[in-house]
Design a protein around this nucleic acid. Structure first.
Length: 558
RNA sequence: GCGCCUGUAGCUCAAUUGGAUAGAGCAUUUGCCUACGAAGCAAAGGGUUAGAGGUUCGAAUCCCCUCAGGCGCACCA
């Protein structure tokens, strides 16, 4: 409601400014912002400061002039009942103050929309894809994947909510050297189990899970002696490994409440035929050349540091080549933009994949790569090892089981994605105020508890007017609820769910403050109680929607 | 050596993308339960925004340099 009012007011002011000055001076576009403190009003414009130079007058003088112009025009318009007053403050801000009616209508609208509060068609059904996690099926998921999963899922939920047509996708690299190594690693362990001698290949997978897999392979295939091994084809080991580990990964993500719409397999997307087609397509456009027996992609033409090899001199394709085919496939499926969520170790790869998109005829911004920084796990003040060598990394499963899904997901979202994250396992497990996820859920549960009490005392919440809510804590709460839509849009603009996390913490704080200072259910004042009860429930609705968008539960009781 | 990211209170991080007195949590000190859930609230101290220069009405934010840390620089995936 307040978000819409802000947009309305902005265009109204711009029209007035244009009508009054349009021919003489081009004023900068008026954009309203939310002041840091409510003493500066509810909306604020810096247009006077910005235009001081063009108008050759001191900002305060301009601001006074504009303020009185705006004031008289607003009085004549339908906006008059929503704007209470306009003030000018040094060094030249024009501040707008909302009326009680604007606040009241905010809550009324929320109850009309209820569980759809804040939903919008901002995204205009634009078809976008978010590809995330996409870990190679060579082992269980790590903490790094867990953070990417939490981020990708939350972001997809938010974008969907504000009107984008979002597809969540996982790309399975089920071909290539790493899969060959996987197969050989399993085979090696199988030989050992059968009493034979074998060495893991260089860069083979050393984790304990490979031994478990070897054991399962042996019993599934009814292998009884060492002599059976040589007759088993390479492909069989590889296919078994991929299938087994994909089942593990799928289950882990499922338990983490992350569900993908589409699972794409490299082996299906990047066939020899589709690869040849893609390379020929680029060649026809002049982006491909031969050099020292290899086939190269002229990525420097699109800003990359150096050209990249598509096909090595030994005839094998590099990792990049099927990946280009996959991205071509994304665009062929009609996505106008694709978001890829990667770890920081892949950032060097961004220029070449963007170059590929451009070579394929798409815009530079058609691929957006979100780099999610790593999380360092702490336990009792000690850093847990993150080494991926020798399979000694902390797994997503361990974190999930140690602290629970809610706390894990919340902690992974608790910082901007570009910020390195310190994850304190002990803190995440605590069920106290220090733990921010409980702080938010506590506010939610508290409101529920008020509702039970209200029911017993047969208090009804009143969902119109709200003219009795005048205390600062009440108005602050109402206004924060009113700007929920704006927050979701900043998540889109920043491509980061973080603004919503920070908003929910803030909203919970405002509620606890309100709760602590005023009694919601007051026998002596039933009218006021009815409005406060409604305000509390408006908070509950907003908190609930926010928590669910982040993939967190909304406990009625704790 | 080159590129990307980061540097803000003792610690972990914010700061509406260039706005008003740089804010929270933890830790420290101190108040508030006969009370709708104290898993809560209120208050205090703590800052040359790594350092130097520049751009302008206005800089933590933009530009240049220096310093420190992380990551990446394959005919690997």
């Amino acid at each position: 409601m307040l978000s819409q009012l802000k947009i309305k007011l902005e265009s109204f002011l711009n029209k007035i400014a244009k009508d009054s000055f349009g021919n003489e001076i081009s004023l900068p576009q008026i954009e309203l912002e939310l002041p840091a403190d409510f003493i500066y009003g509810d909306f604020s414009s810096n247009v006077a400061l910005k235009s001081a130079k063009i108008m050759k007058k001191p900002p305060l003088v301009i601001a006074e002039g504009l303020a009185s112009l705006f004031s008289s025009e607003i009085k004549k318009s339908e906006l008059s009942e929503y704007i209470e007053k306009i003030e000018v403050k040094a060094p030249g801000f024009i501040n707008f103050y909302l009326s009680a009616k604007a606040a009241g209508q905010t809550i009324e609208m929320l109850f009309q929309e209820e569980e759809n509060y804040g939903k919008s068609n901002f995204g205009k059904k634009e078809k976008i894809q978010i590809e995330f996690v996409s870990a190679n099926p060579t082992g269980p998921l790590s903490v790094a994947h867990a953070r990417q999963a939490a981020v990708g899922d939350a972001l997809a939920n938010i974008l969907k909510y504000i009107g984008f047509d979002v597809t969540k996708e996982y790309y399975v690299n089920d071909e290539g050297n790493q899969i060959v190594l996987l197969g050989e690693s399993i085979k090696t362990r199988a030989i050992e189990i059968l009493g034979g001698q074998a060495n893991l290949p260089e860069n083979g997978y050393q984790g304990e899970y490979i031994k478990d897999m070897a054991q399962i392979f042996i019993s599934e295939n009814k292998i009884t002696k060492l002599e059976d091994i040589p007759s088993i084809k390479h492909e069989k080991w590889m296919q078994f490994g991929v299938k087994y580990l994909m089942d593990v990964i799928r289950k882990e993500l499922d338990d983490f409440r992350v569900h993908f719409d589409v699972w794409s397999y490299q082996s299906k997307k990047a066939t020899l035929k589709s690869i040849a087609g893609m390379v020929e397509g680029l060649r026809a456009k002049g982006f491909v050349y031969e050099h020292e027996g290899a086939v190269w992609f002229k990525s420097t033409q699109f800003g990359d540091d150096k050209d990249r090899v598509l096909r090595k001199s030994d005839g094998a394709y590099t990792y990049l080549t099927p990946d280009i085919v996959y991205h071509k496939d994304k665009f062929d499926r009609g996505f106008s933009r694709v978001f890829n969520i990667w770890g920081p170790d892949h950032h060097g790869y961004i220029p070449r994949i963007k170059a590929a998109a451009q070579a394929l005829g798409h815009d530079h911004n058609s691929i957006e790569v979100l780099i999610v920084q790593l999380a360092t796990l702490y336990k009792n003040g000690e850093v847990l090892s993150m080494s991926t060598r020798k399979g000694q990394y902390v797994s997503m499963r361990e974190v999930m089981e140690e602290v629970g899904v809610d706390a894990a997901r919340f902690f992974f979202l608790m910082r901007h994605i570009k910020a390195h994250l310190d994850f304190d396992l002990e803190l995440a497990k605590k069920e106290t105020a220090e733990n921010p996820v409980f702080y938010i859920q506590y506010a939610y549960a508290r409101i529920n508890s008020i509702n039970s009490k209200a029911e017993i005392a047969s208090f009804k919440s009143k969902q119109t007017d709200f003219c009795l809510l005048k205390e600062e804590e009440e108005l602050v709460l109402i206004k924060k609820i009113g700007f929920f839509t704006d927050i979701l849009i900043s998540c889109y603009q920043q491509l980061d769910p973080y603004p919503l996390v920070s908003y929910l913490l803030d909203l919970a704080t405002s509620f606890h403050r309100f709760y602590d200072r005023y009694k919601v259910i007051d026998e002596g004042n039933k009218e006021l109680s009815a409005e406060r009860l409604a305000l509390a429930n408006a908070t509950k609705v907003t908190l609930g929607i926010g928590l669910r968008l982040l993939g967190l539960s909304t406990p009625e009781r704790m």
